[in-house]
C-alpha cells in the first residue's frame, strides 16, 4: 500500500518538482484519508511538515462517468471561485452585482452538488483550488476570471457533448451549458455594458456565429492552472 501510494502520487507531480519524500506521520494521515475515501484535501491544507504539496491525483475515469467527472471538476472550480467572491466581495461591488454574483454562485454550487450526487461512488474527490493569481479585492481581476471560467465552461460542455453516449446525460449537459452561457454573457456585460462583448467576436466566431467547442485535452490544462490537485484524464472517450 505504501509503495503503491508513493509511486502513484510522486509519479504524477508536475515535471520540474523533485520527488517528495513523504514523512511517516504525513503518510499515515494521508493514507488514512485515502482509506476513508474522502477528505485528503483537508489534511493537505496543513502543510507545515512538508511545504511541497503532496496530493493524490484524481483520475476522471472512463466512459460517460469520465465526462460527468470532467463536468464535476469544472463545476467544483467555478463553485469554489464564486463562493470566495461572495465571501470576500471586491471593493465597490454594487448591490446589483452582488445579487447577480450570488445567483451564479448558487447555480454553480447546485451544479457541483448535483454531479457529486449523480456520480455517487464514481465521483472524483473534492479538488483543492489554486486561486493565487486572482485578486479577490479587485473587481477587474474577479470579473475577468469569472469571464474566463464561464467561457471555458461553455467551450468544455460544447466540446464534450459528442463524447457522451447516454442520451439522458447529454440532455442534462444541455440543461447546464446554456446556464453557463447565460452567466458568461452577464459577466461580459458587467465588464463592458451594452457592447457586443456579451457574445463578442473573441468568443463567437463572426463568420459562423458559433461559440467555442474545446476538447478536454484543451480545457483541462487551463483548468489545471487553478487547481492544486493533479487531474489526470487518460481514459476519456475520443
Amino acid at each position: 500500500m505504501k509503495k503503491q501510494q508513493e509511486e502513484v502520487s510522486l509519479g504524477m507531480l508536475p515535471g520540474q518538482l523533485e520527488p517528495v519524500r513523504v514523512g511517516r506521520r504525513l503518510f499515515l494521515r494521508y493514507a488514512g484519508a485515502f482509506a476513508t475515501g474522502g477528505a485528503i484535501l483537508a489534511s493537505c491544507k496543513n502543510g507545515e511538515e512538508n511545504p511541497t504539496t503532496v496530493m493524490a491525483p484524481v483520475d476522471l475515469g472512463s466512459g460517460d462517468v469520465s465526462i460527468l467527472n470532467y463536468a464535476y471538476a469544472l463545476e467544483q472550480l467555478e463553485a469554489a471561485f464564486y463562493t470566495q467572491v461572495i465571501a470576500t466581495p471586491y471593493s465597490g461591488m454594487t448591490d446589483a452585482e452582488k445579487t447577480l454574483l450570488t445567483d451564479i454562485r448558487n447555480h454553480e454550487i447546485i451544479h457541483r452538488e448535483f454531479f457529486k450526487a449523480a456520480l455517487g461512488a464514481n465521483a472524483i474527490a473534492a479538488l483543492t483550488p489554486n486561486f493565487t493569481t486572482i485578486t479577490f479585492t479587485d473587481r477587474s481581476s474577479v470579473l475577468n476570471t469569472a469571464k474566463a471560467f464561464e467561457d471555458l465552461g461553455v467551450s468544455a460542455y460544447n466540446g464534450a457533448g459528442s463524447l457522451i453516449k447516454d442520451v439522458n446525460y447529454l440532455a442534462l449537459a444541455g440543461k447546464i451549458v446554456s446556464v453557463e452561457a447565460r452567466h458568461a454573457a452577464a459577466i461580459r456585460d458587467l465588464l463592458n455594458p451594452k457592447s457586443a462583448d456579451f457574445a463578442g467576436d473573441d468568443i463567437v466566431a463572426p463568420a459562423t456565429g458559433l461559440d467555442k467547442a474545446d476538447a478536454p485535452s484543451v480545457v483541462l490544462p487551463i483548468a489545471q492552472t487553478y487547481v492544486k490537485t493533479q487531474i489526470t484524464a487518460t481514459n476519456l472517450p475520443k
Binding site: Y157, N158, G174, V179, A181, L210, D211
Partner: peptide, 12 residues
C-alpha cells in the same frame, strides 16, 4: 451545441 450556447448568450 455551438449555436445553442450563442442563443443562450443572446437570451441572457
Amino acid at each position: 451545441l455551438q449555436i445553442h450556447s450563442v442563443e443562450a448568450r443572446h437570451a441572457s
